[in-house]
Amino acid sequence: MGAVDIILNYFSRSSIVSIVVLGWLSLYFILSFSILLSRMSGLSLWYKAERDSLESLVRGSIRPSIGSSLSKCANSGENINEKKLRICLLMAQKRATSGLAWLSVIASTSPFIGLFGTVVSILETFAGLGNGANSSLSVIAPAISEALVATAAGILVAIPAYSFNILLKRRSYELVSVIEQQVDLLSVRGKSELDA
């Protein structure tokens, strides 16, 4: 019996609640990986641009590089405004952390969704026993083991979602830290221009 036959056999015996729960968890699983892949690549490119901008500021440039999120806040035609830079920093921080809320929701709710599927399946198994069905261990054990698949699936979805949340949170922190360093450099230069 192949893996496809086992899966088809499982779904043919499962209730609609179990199928919905596994479908929901499958959607969460796909969503977790898509958030990770899209956000990690985007954050990596953005981090590189911000790091390059910081390096140019350290070398003596007066303005952030074009690729920096601060380039719009420090236009070449005006003096550097610290409040404007702080607002741009907050906007960049919000953009850097997008998607993290979804990963947090997925990581925290997946085990509960799986547990719900398990409880419903076990209730259905016991309801079948109460209706005069064969109550031998050979009937009960497979039904309960099939019910536990939902709990296992919930945990399987939660672990990568939680891990991805931590990885992306760390990457966002590193990015925002580089932008904060640029804001600090530009603020010091703006104050020295005003003093001069």
Results as ranks from 00 to 15, higher is better:
I122S: 02
F126A: 01
G128Q: 10
P142S: 04
V119P: 05
A127V: 15
S135Q: 13
S145N: 14
S145E: 11
E146G: 10
G130T: 02
V149A: 14
L148Y: 10
A127P: 04
G132S: 08
T151Y: 04
I144V: 15
I122D: 04
N134G: 03
T151Q: 02
E146Y: 12
A143D: 13
I140T: 05
A141R: 11
S135N: 13
I144R: 02
S138R: 08
I122A: 03
P142K: 05
V119A: 07
G130A: 10
G130E: 08
I122P: 02
N131Y: 03
A152D: 10
I122V: 15
E146K: 14
S138N: 13
F126L: 11
A150D: 12
P142Q: 06
A147C: 11
E124D: 14
V149Q: 14
T125P: 00
G132R: 04
I140G: 08
A150P: 06
G117Q: 04
E124F: 07
L137D: 06
N131L: 11
S121R: 05
L123A: 06
V139Y: 01
L123D: 08
V139E: 01
I144S: 04
G132M: 00
T125G: 00
N131P: 04
G130D: 07
T118S: 01
E124I: 11
A147E: 03
P142R: 03
I144Y: 09
L129G: 00
A147Q: 06
L137T: 14
G132Q: 04
S136G: 15
A143N: 12
L123K: 09
A152E: 06
S121L: 02
A133G: 15
L123G: 05
N134P: 01
L148E: 09
G132Y: 12
L148F: 09
I140V: 15
G117E: 09
S121K: 02
L129Y: 11
N134Y: 13
V119C: 10
A133C: 13
L123N: 11
S136P: 03
A143C: 11
S145Q: 10
G130H: 03
S138Y: 10
A147L: 08
S138C: 03
E146F: 07
L148R: 02
E124L: 12
T151E: 01
N131M: 10
A133T: 12
I140P: 02
A127G: 11
P142L: 09
T125W: 04
G117K: 00
S138D: 12
V119E: 06
T125A: 14
A147K: 06
A150T: 10
A152Q: 09
L123H: 08
I144A: 03
L129F: 14
S145F: 07
T125V: 13
A143G: 10
A143I: 05
E146T: 07
L137R: 05
S138H: 07
L148H: 02
A127T: 13
V120S: 05
E146S: 15
V149C: 13
T151N: 02
E146M: 13
S145V: 00
E146V: 04
V149F: 12
T118V: 01
G117D: 09
V139F: 01
V139R: 00
T125E: 04
N134D: 15
A152Y: 06
A133R: 09
L123C: 02
L148P: 04
A152C: 15
V139H: 00
L137E: 09
A141K: 12
E124A: 06
T125N: 01
F126S: 03
E124W: 05
L129A: 03
S138M: 08
A147M: 11
